[in-house]
Computed example of a mutant assay.
Amino acid sequence: MTPSLEQIQWPVRTERLRLRRLTEQDLEATWSYRKLPEVTQWITAGPHDFETYREQFLESGKIDLDVAVELQTPDGQLRLIGTVMVYIKDAWGQREIVEQTKSVEAELGWSFDPQFAGQGYASEAVLKVMEICFEDLGLRRVVAECFAANKPSVKLMERVGMRREASEKANSLHRSGAWMDSYAYALLADEWSAHRG
Rank of each mutant, 00 (worst) to 15 (best):
S172I: 13
R175T: 12
R175K: 14
A166D: 03
A148N: 00
A186G: 12
D181P: 04
F147P: 05
S176K: 03
G177Q: 05
S172M: 10
S153D: 03
A178G: 00
D181G: 02
M180Y: 05
S167M: 05
H174P: 00
G177K: 07
R159S: 11
A166V: 13
E168W: 00
K151E: 15
S176N: 15
M162N: 05
M157Y: 01
K169S: 10
A178Y: 06
K169D: 02
K155V: 09
N171A: 11
R159T: 09
P152L: 07
K151S: 08
K169R: 15
R164A: 06
G177Y: 01
R175Q: 08
F147W: 03
S172T: 14
R175H: 14
R175W: 15
S172H: 14
H174E: 09
A148F: 02
L173V: 00
S172R: 12
A148Y: 01
A149G: 12
S172K: 13
A148K: 12
A178D: 14
L187P: 12
L173D: 06
R164C: 15
A186F: 02
S182C: 09
S167I: 04
M157I: 00
A184H: 04
R159D: 13
L187N: 05
A170R: 14
A184N: 06
R163P: 01
K169H: 09
S182F: 13
P152D: 00
A178E: 15
A184Q: 11
M162S: 09
H174K: 00
P152V: 00
S176V: 07
D181L: 06
A170Q: 15
A178K: 15
M162V: 09
A148S: 13
N150S: 08
Y185F: 14
L187E: 15
N171V: 12
E165W: 01
L156K: 05
L187H: 09
V160D: 06
S153L: 04
S167C: 13
E165T: 07
R159N: 15
Y185W: 04
A149D: 05
H174W: 07
S167H: 15
A184E: 09
S172D: 03
Y185L: 10
M162D: 04
K151D: 14
D181R: 06
Y183S: 02
E165H: 03
R175N: 10
K151Q: 13
E165K: 02
K155Y: 11
A178P: 02
S167V: 10
A186I: 09
W179D: 06
F147I: 03
L156A: 08
V154E: 10
M162L: 04
S182A: 12
E158W: 11
G161W: 03
Y183H: 15
V160S: 05
H174S: 07
Y183I: 11
E165A: 05
K169M: 01
F147Y: 14
S153G: 09
M157L: 08
